[in-house]
Each structure stands twice: as C-alpha cells, then as structure tokens.
Design a binder for these strands. Structure first.
Lengths: 156, 156
DNA sequence: CTGAATATTTGACAAGGTGAACCTTTCATG
DNA sequence: CATGAAAGGTTCACCTTGTCAAATATTCAG
C-alpha cells in the first residue's frame, strides 16, 4: 500500500506521519475550543451549533442529522427540542412520509449560524501565518486527505 | 498584516482561507470521531483518554490538567475519580505542597494510553493518500500554524 | 497569629450521549 | 384487504462532561 519503499513502511507509522498526527491533534484541540467559544458567545452549545450548521443546506429529517453527526437519533430529539424552544428551528411532518420530521432553520436560526461561521477567528489568527501560496498548498493537501476518507460533517 | 497585497486581504476572509477552514472542520470532525471510537474501544471516554495522554509526560497536579484542557478544576476531580476507580491513575499529595494532588498514570493506565495512541488509524487511512514529500510539506505548514497560535493540548 | 490566596473537593444543576421500550406510519406479502 | 415487519421519532432511565458557588485544607505574607 505504500508508495515509497525508500523507508521501511512496514513499521506501524513513520516518524513524519506520527508528527503530523500529533500536530493535527493540536489543531483539532484548538479548533474545537474556538468553535465551542464562538457558539457559547451566542449562547449556543457546540452540538446545537453543529445542527444549525447542517441546516444551512436546507431542511433535513432527524434521522439524517443523527447519521451525519454519528450519534443516536434519540439524542437529536433533545437538541432539536432546545433549538425549537428558542425559535431557531421548526419541526414539521414530511408530507411524503408522515413518519419523518423535517427540521428547518428559522430566519433567526440561519442568521445565528451564519454569524457564528463568520466569527471563527480561527481563520484569521493562525492561518494568517501562511501566505497565499502556502494556503493553497494546505488546501490541496487537506482536500486530498479528506477525499480519501469518506468526508462528512460540514460543521463550520 | 498581510504578506501579499496581490489580493484584497481587507475582506473578512478570502476564498481560499474560507475553504481551508471548512476543510479543517471536516478534518476535525473526522479526527474527533476516530479518537472517541478508539477510546471507547478501550472503554474510556474521550475526556478520560485525554487526561491519560497528558500523564504520559509524568505526574501532574489537578490544576495543571484543568488548565491544559481548558476546563474547571472541579471537572477534573470527577474524571480522575473514575480513572482512579479503574486503577488507571493514582492520586497522591505533593510532599512539597500538601494542597496539591499529583496524579500519575499507573502501569495499566500508561499502557492503555499508549495502545490507544498506536491504534489511531487516522494516521494510516487518510494520511496514506500523501507521499513522503507531501507529508513533510503538511507537517511544516501545520507546525507554522500551531507555532503562531499558542499551541497546547498534546492529546493524541 | 491572622488573614488572604491557592488547590482541591462537594453539591446542585444543565446538556450531551447511550440503550431499550414504545407509538405511528409505511410497506410488502399472503 | 389485512397483518405483521420495518422505519422514524420520542420517552425514559442512566452515565459522563461541564459549570458555578460554597466548603475545606494548606500555604504564605505580615
């Protein structure tokens, strides 16, 4: 499976891969914290923000939300309850299949989500260290990685 | 602050930065899921795994754990309670300052953490899409980003 | 010795998450 | 058409994370 036999790729992981994984862990932690903070600043929880973000693409059945977020449907019930209680989403029966509930962001819900997305300083702070060429390079590398691993969850 | 005036860097965020942020969100989600799963496979929660990972570097006061994980110290109490209950860590008063409790991983705790780290397929699957040169490139870019943003939390 | 500051714990409480049981609606099949 | 199995959601009981405020123990400056 390895491209280059130059290194003993038989070992669990080579040094560079290992370091990249560690760096990503740091990145993940950083991103996560920022996201949570940005959500909290709008008195949303991370999970609520994620659901709202999903709904930017249009109404969606509960089941689909649960799948995308890889959690149990019963969990989504509560999250949507709270969002609904605050007027950020609505829940309507799908006319096609009345078992299905279609969750849709309200105007204020959509606005909150858009605002949050805009506010992610993450984009400015650490990414500012790179110039255009490097950002493009990074983009291409990330694309390849995600492409290769059934990407999902467009949460920001 | 921008290096290249070629693009109007005055706007909130340029297209590439925006895309990079979205890609990172995907990466973060992916990594997060994998980490949680890998932990669950050893019947640890994500939070417990993170604490164990921190302790790989040696014993550490509760307070320090809380700071590194950016949460309230009272939260750590519970997590360490559960880890201690399962024999993964010990809690001892620091002889230097008896207010301080030093948390240390036991042998089995350290082993579990090491095992978990090894098992992160994340390294193999999506990263396998890149060759050595690209992995190095990615490493360098990530280093720069994290350097620039008070890095922390070496959790994996 | 006194009082302020520090490290941790405790308790009450909200939210995220799971799993099992339950209702409603759909759908296949006899 | 009737019936039963399967699918989408909800409810309930339960655990873990996380917060905040109050309590305890220890240190340290005067």
């Amino acid at each position: 499976m390895e491209t280059k036999p130059t290194q003993e790729a038989t070992a669990p992981t080579d040094a560079i891969t290992r370091e990249v994984v560690d760096l990503m862990a740091g990145l993940v932690a950083l991103f996560h914290r920022e996201y949570e903070e940005a959500a909290a600043a709008r008195s949303l929880t991370g999970a609520q923000a994620k659901v709202l973000a999903l709904l930017r693409r249009g109404p969606m059945p509960m089941r689909h939300i649960a799948q995308t977020l890889s959690c149990e449907p019963s969990n989504i019930t509560g999250i949507v309850d709270r969002l609904e209680g605050r007027g950020f989403v609505t829940r309507e029966a799908d006319p096609q299949d009345r078992r299905v509930k279609l969750v849709a962001a309200t105007d204020s819900g959509g606005a909150a989500s858009e605002e949050l997305r805009e506010s992610l300083n993450f984009a400015r702070e650490p990414l500012a260290a790179l110039d255009d060429r490097e950002r493009t390079q990074l983009r291409d590398l990330l694309r390849r990685i995600l492409e290769h691993a059934g990407e999902d969850d467009p949460r920001a």
